[in-house]
C-alpha cells in the first residue's frame, strides 16, 4: 500500500451563528493515500464541502472556525503553519476545483490570465513561458484551438469548457492532491462523462491523489478507490469502493444505495429513508441517524457510536456492530 498523503485527525469545524453553533464537521478522521481517489459522499449539509475547505484553510472566519483536530499533509499539520506557508501549498501542492464553473472564474480576466496566475505566483516561469505552459495545459484538458481559447473570456465558453479550464488552472503547478467539489453536478450527463474521463486520465498520468466530493453514487462507483460516507458532520462509514457497494454496513449507506433508481434494475417502488436530515444546530448526544433508522435501539437514542474498525480496511460507526447490538 502506498504512503499516506493527507490525514484528517479529529477535525472539528464549527460555525458560530446567531441561531446557535453549527457543528458542520464534527470529529472527522480519515486519510488519503498517494495516487488514490477518495470519494466523500453524503447529502447536502453533511459537511463534505466544509471538510475540503478546512483542508485548504478557506473557512471564512467569522463565522466559521476550526476548533480542533489536525490535518496532516505529508506529515505537516496544515492547521499549525503560518498563512504565508499555507499560500505556498494552496494552488501549488493542493489544488481545488469547484462545483460552479460559471461563478468560480473571474469574468473580467481572460482564461489565459487565470491559468497563468498560479504559474507566475508559484513557479519561476517568465510571462511568456507561462503563456506557453498555459496553452499546453488547455490542450491537455482536451480543448481544441488552445492558442485562440487562451485569449477568450469565461462567458464565451460553455459549461463543460469552463470546467475544463478550471481543471487546467488547478493542474498548472502539478499538485499532489486535487480536490474536486461536485465537479460535474452542474453539467449534462454526456459532458459529465467527458469530464470524469478527463479527471481519471489526468490522475493516472500524473499519479496525483484525488479527493472527490459528490452526492451521486453512480459517480462514486466509477471513480473511487476508497469511499467515506458522511452524515450530519460525521463519518459514519468508510471502506474500499467494492466493499461499500457490495456489503454496506451502516443503515444509512444501505438506504442511500437502495433509494437510488438504477437503470436496468427497475423496482415497482423505491426504498425511502423516512424523515429528513436533522437540523445541524443543537444536535444531541444520540446517533444523529437514529430518528430515521429502522434498526434504532435504545442505545442509539442515548449515545453516539464511535467509528470502529470493521473488516480489513473498513470502518463503521453503528451500534449494530458493537456492544449489545453485535450478533
Amino acid at each position: 500500500m502506498s504512503s499516506t498523503l493527507v490525514e484528517f485527525r479529529n477535525l472539528k469545524t464549527y460555525f458560530y451563528t446567531e441561531a446557535g453553533v453549527v457543528q458542520a464537521v464534527n470529529d472527522v478522521s480519515f486519510s488519503i493515500r498517494a495516487g488514490e481517489t477518495v470519494c466523500i459522499v453524503g447529502e447536502s449539509g453533511c459537511g463534505k464541502s466544509i471538510t475540503a475547505m478546512s483542508l485548504m484553510r478557506l473557512i471564512a472566519s467569522p463565522p466559521g472556525k476550526i476548533v480542533g483536530g489536525e490535518i496532516l499533509f505529508e506529515g505537516r499539520d496544515l492547521l499549525k503553519i503560518k498563512e504565508s506557508e499555507m499560500r505556498m501549498i494552496r494552488g501549488n501542492e493542493i489544488a481545488m476545483i469547484f462545483q460552479e464553473p460559471m461563478t468560480s472564474l473571474n469574468p473580467v480576466l481572460t482564461v489565459g490570465d487565470q491559468i497563468m496566475e498560479p504559474l507566475i505566483e508559484h513557479t519561476l516561469l517568465s510571462k511568456s513561458e507561462a503563456r506557453k505552459k498555459a496553452i499546453q495545459l488547455i490542450e491537455q484538458v482536451g480543448i481544441p484551438r488552445a492558442d485562440q481559447i487562451i485569449d477568450s473570456y469565461p462567458h464565451e465558453l460553455s459549461g463543460g469548457m469552463r470546467q475544463r479550464i478550471m481543471i487546467a488552472i488547478s493542474l498548472s503547478c502539478d499538485p499532489k492532491l486535487l480536490i474536486a467539489d461536485e465537479p460535474t453536478t452542474a453539467l449534462d450527463v454526456t459532458i459529465q462523462a467527458q469530464i470524469l474521463d478527463l479527471l481519471r486520465q489526468l490522475k493516472k498520468d500524473r499519479n496525483m491523489s484525488l479527493m472527490l466530493i459528490t452526492h451521486d453514487l453512480g459517480v462514486v462507483a466509477e471513480m473511487a478507490d476508497y469511499v467515506v460516507v458522511m452524515y450530519a458532520g460525521k463519518v459514519i462509514e468508510e471502506g474500499p469502493v467494492k466493499e461499500i457497494f457490495k456489503n454496506p454496513r451502516h443503515p444509512y449507506t444501505k438506504g442511500l444505495l437502495l433509494a437510488k433508481p438504477v437503470i436496468g434494475q427497475r423496482k415497482e417502488r423505491l426504498f425511502t429513508i423516512p424523515g429528513q436530515v436533522p437540523n445541524p444546530i443543537g444536535l444531541g448526544e444520540n446517533c444523529h441517524y437514529s430518528d430515521r433508522c429502522e434498526h434504532a435501539m435504545d442505545i442509539c437514542r442515548a449515545s453516539q457510536p464511535a467509528l470502529q474498525k470493521d473488516g480489513a480496511d473498513s470502518k463503521v460507526a453503528c451500534w449494530l456492530y458493537e456492544g449489545e447490538g453485535a450478533k
Partner: peptide
C-alpha cells in the same frame, strides 16, 4: 445510446463500453 451509456451506474464491478460524444451541444 450515448445518453444511456453516459449515465454512471452505481456498481463498481461493472465496466462498460462507453460512447463518448465529442464537443458541446
Amino acid at each position: 445510446k450515448a445518453l444511456l451509456s453516459a449515465v454512471p451506474i452505481p456498481d463498481p464491478t461493472i465496466t462498460r463500453e462507453r460512447i463518448f460524444l465529442k464537443g458541446d451541444i
